[in-house]
Design a protein around this nucleic acid. Structure first.
Lengths: 120, 120
DNA sequence: TGAACATATGAATATATACTCATATATGAA
DNA sequence: TTCATATATGAGTATATATTCATATGTTCA
């Protein structure tokens, strides 16, 4: 006794089972897609975008960035922590001062791809 | 009477005024950076990443996507609305069924740039 | 017309997160 | 050691948003 081609799942009827099966096989690992989303989430905040863009121009200390963006030192420091965690920025210490810089040569390329979409 | 090179702004002392001024001049418009962040924010959710990836393989209807991702039709529909708004997906209607597909050839390139970072 | 189905959407809820505020840590100078 | 400064960070708050639930809209078919 064969079940009909239309199977109940979720709250709707599958209409194109072949397509669903084909795409399911080609989809990357759940974890990979999650990591990808997490990375883009970091780019999805204008403060962090500004920090990354600034650092693509020059190495800067926390105070410099806060001044540039007219934000508090604390707010910038919190965001830098996030950027460090995903290894988009690195830092070096010189006395009291901590200098941040980009840790990924591809940041600009990610920006560029985004701009291509925006400017179309 | 000349003010010292160190000027109080925000809650900290400017340490490298030349750098700040230089970077300030080179920064894109506030609005451009905001739009860029808004675009990446759309990529910053694993459900939407999965939808985009799926659509990069094949045109699919809402029900197909819901089945593929094991989520409700409503949740998918809400996310498709967001993807439509930023013109990452387009749709065509055929009777009751609405078929979605990618509306930007660069989606895959944006993915690829993100993966380059993750896989390093 | 009415029933069935595919999709869309408004409201509510639960969760994530950006910033503030207060304070801790670390370094250099007096 | 004591003070000043640069940065980091924990807690709290306000806001954004992903999903659910109920329901509306629109289309096909009997």
């Amino acid at each position: 006794m064969v079940i009909k081609n239309e199977i109940e799942r979720c709250d709707c009827t599958v209409i194109h089972e072949e397509v669903v099966d084909m795409v399911k096989q080609k989809m990357p690992d759940e974890e990979k897609l999650y990591d990808l989303a997490e990375l883009f989430k970091v780019f999805g905040d204008s403060t962090r975008i500004k920090i990354l863009w600034a650092l693509s121009e020059s190495e800067m200390c926390v105070c410099d960035i806060a001044t540039l963006l007219n934000m508090t030192q604390s707010a910038i420091s919190h965001q830098l922590r996030i950027l460090k965690q995903v290894r988009l920025v690195k830092f070096r210490k010189d006395g009291k001062v901590v200098y941040y810089s980009l840790d990924d040569a591809h940041v600009k390329q990610i920006f560029d791809q985004g701009l291509v979409h925006i400017n179309e």
